[in-house]
């Protein structure tokens, strides 16, 4: 304790003592990045929590709680600007809740087998790898095409999506499509949210643009809107089945996070969209590479301990 030294805080659920300034700092840095790029930042924060010694089960559950805060903070501005498609958000949410339930079930089953760390890390490597590469290629192409005018492609292309039944009209998005694709996307993102401790915006946003064909201006707000509910539901599931939501950890992260996010938004507004995308893609690929490296290289300690009945 003391003002000049590191201030240690004992986390009541994780049962470890950590430097409070380190957590505030991590929350702040990830907050700046999430504000800059308009992403939740869960995909960065959860691995960082693993690295500083928070038990993975606590990291995933607590991060879900923190994303509720950052998404809620972000969605308010979108509601004001009327860039949230509530109807589409509701349909995605139905899938999201089903997916989150499935995800927590899978998570708890694999935790019993001792394979949950592996599952979480593999999910990170696979999804960050795919999304990072796609974004990187896409933004490189955009950078080289930036001089060319009229690259906007027609949005209402007829694809297999339009052949599916149970159609519904989404006025804000200007779409008349089947509810099957959005529910399926919701389920996939819900599963990932529960397993990886992320909001899933980094998958949801491209899926909304490229698969559903939603207009870009409503994508972020709608994604944030449904993320709030999916992560809130995930938080409740983890809190009631695993007792792994650490409120003290969550508060430290979200104080740093919400402040950081506001600064990030200001910085983000000053950079060009293509530069932002390339930066974000590079960062996603770096996290992916680090996690893949840890899985492939022989660890310095091949044994690991875990409690029985606890976490």
């Amino acid at each position: 304790m003391g003002l000049c030294g590191p201030m240690y805080i004992y986390l009541p659920i994780a049962e470890v003592s950590v430097n409070a300034f380190l957590l505030l700092g991590l929350g702040g840095i990830v907050g700046v990045l999430s504000g800059m790029f308009g992403v939740g930042g869960g995909f960065l924060m959860t691995p960082l929590l693993f690295f500083i010694g928070i038990p993975p089960a606590v990291a995933v559950a607590t991060e879900a709680n923190q994303i509720v805060a950052s998404s809620f903070s972000g969605v308010l501005a979108h509601v004001k600007r009327r860039t949230v498609d509530f109807k589409m958000g509701g349909v995605l949410l139905i899938g999201g809740l089903i997916g989150a339930g499935m995800g927590v079930f899978i998570f708890n089953y694999l935790k019993g087998l001792g394979q949950v760390d592996l599952l979480v890390k593999l999910c990170y490597v696979v999804f960050l790898g795919i999304i990072g590469s796609l974004m990187f290629i896409e933004s490189l192409r955009a950078l080289s095409n930036v001089k060319r005018v009229g690259t906007s492609k027609p949005r209402h292309k007829r694809t297999w999506i339009h052949a599916l039944p149970i159609k519904m009209r989404f006025r804000v998005s200007g779409l008349y499509i089947s509810v099957i694709p959005p529910i399926s996307i919701g389920i996939l993102v819900g599963v990932l949210a529960a397993i990886m401790g992320v909001g899933g915006g980094f998958i949801m946003v491209p899926a909304m643009i490229y698969i559903l064909g939603m207009p870009t201006k409503v994508v972020v707000g709608t994604s944030l809107f449904q993320i709030i509910f999916v992560t809130a539901f995930t938080t409740m599931l983890h809190a009631t089945t695993n007792y792994t939501v650490d409120m003290v950890l969550a508060v430290l992260l979200l104080v740093g996070g919400v402040i950081g996010a506001q600064f990030g938004t200001v910085i983000g507004a000053k950079l060009k969209a293509e530069q932002l995308r390339i930066l974000l893609a590079t960062m996603v690929l770096l996290v992916c590479a680090k996690l893949a490296f840890d899985l492939i290289v022989e660890p310095s300690e091949i044994f690991n301990l875990s409690g029985i009945g606890g976490h």
Binding site: N65, Q66, V68, A69, S70, S71, F72, S73, G74, L76, A232, T235, M236, A239, V245, M247, A250, V251, L254, V255, V258, I259, A261, Q262
Partner: peptide, 12 residues
Amino acid sequence: SLAIAIFAGWSA
């Protein structure tokens, strides 16, 4: 936990 998160998000 959720109430704290919502409040923190709103106040920020």
